[in-house]
């Protein structure tokens, strides 16, 4: 998995609440059997019209935000389905960090498996970051995972909370399966004990 430590880049503002996984990547793009190539269809139904032309006022179509690496959004970002295609599309587009007041549980977990950092901050902080993002491509925001901070283009600093295990894995780019396989003895002994206690399983 890709490592994440520091990122400085353009942040795109999406001040909508409840941005759901169908908005992030509509289901017609879930028919792939690969992980890559979904960035072109990120936010597809907001980004393109029926004929496939770009909708000019959609944020990621505006010149200032085409290269955005950070997304600032409203509460409950990523609600809806478990589709990992959502973080795959976000990452494939080039976004490595999403900032919102809150995230849906499954989406939040899926981000970490794909080298994306989701940052939850209080609404007031997100409001400040949203204003900063609205300044366009001259305003570059900085994220420091080690220090757990987001810094606006004006130098205002916000500190965010994060699970220490998730942080460790993201900073080191660790593969979960490999980590768990190293604990195989525990799984073996659990399985043996469970087979005794609940043989019908």
């Amino acid at each position: 998995m890709d490592k994440f430590d520091k990122l400085t880049g353009v942040a795109a503002p999406m001040p909508l609440v409840n941005i759901d996984t169908d908005m992030i990547i509509p289901k017609q793009f879930l028919k792939t059997i690969q992980r890559s190539g979904l960035g072109a269809n990120l936010f597809d139904e907001m980004r393109y019209d029926r004929e496939g032309n770009e909708v000019p006022d959609f944020v990621l179509n505006q010149p200032a935000y085409r290269e955005a690496e950070i997304l600032v959004a409203g509460e409950n970002f990523g609600c809806g389905s478990s589709r990992e295609h959502a973080p795959w599309a976000i990452k494939d587009f080039g976004i490595r960090c999403v900032i919102a007041p809150s995230f849906a549980d499954i989406f939040y977990n899926n981000c970490f498996k794909n080298g994306i950092l989701p940052i939850a901050l209080p609404q007031e902080a997100v409001d400040v970051l949203m204003k900063d993002a609205e300044k366009g491509s001259n305003a570059r925001m900085s994220v420091d995972l080690e220090a757990q901070t987001v810094t606006t283009s004006d130098g205002e600093v916000f500190t965010f909370e994060l699970d220490s295990f998730k942080k460790h894995c993201l900073m080191e780019g660790l593969d979960d399966i490999g980590l768990t396989m190293a604990k195989e003895a525990s799984i073996d002994s659990y399985e043996a004990q469970a087979a005794q206690a609940r043989p019908w399983v």
Binding site: R35, S81, S82, R83, E84, P87, I106, N109, N110, K113, N114, D163, F165, D176, I177, L179, T180, M181, E184, I187, E191
Partner: peptide, 21 residues
């Protein structure tokens, strides 16, 4: 019972466990 992403599907297939808090 709960939903998981594809990376977790692979994790469960390989280890029959899920990393959880």
């Amino acid at each position: 019972a709960h939903g998981i992403g594809t990376s977790e599907v692979e994790h469960v297939l390989a280890t029959q466990t899920l990393i959880q808090k």
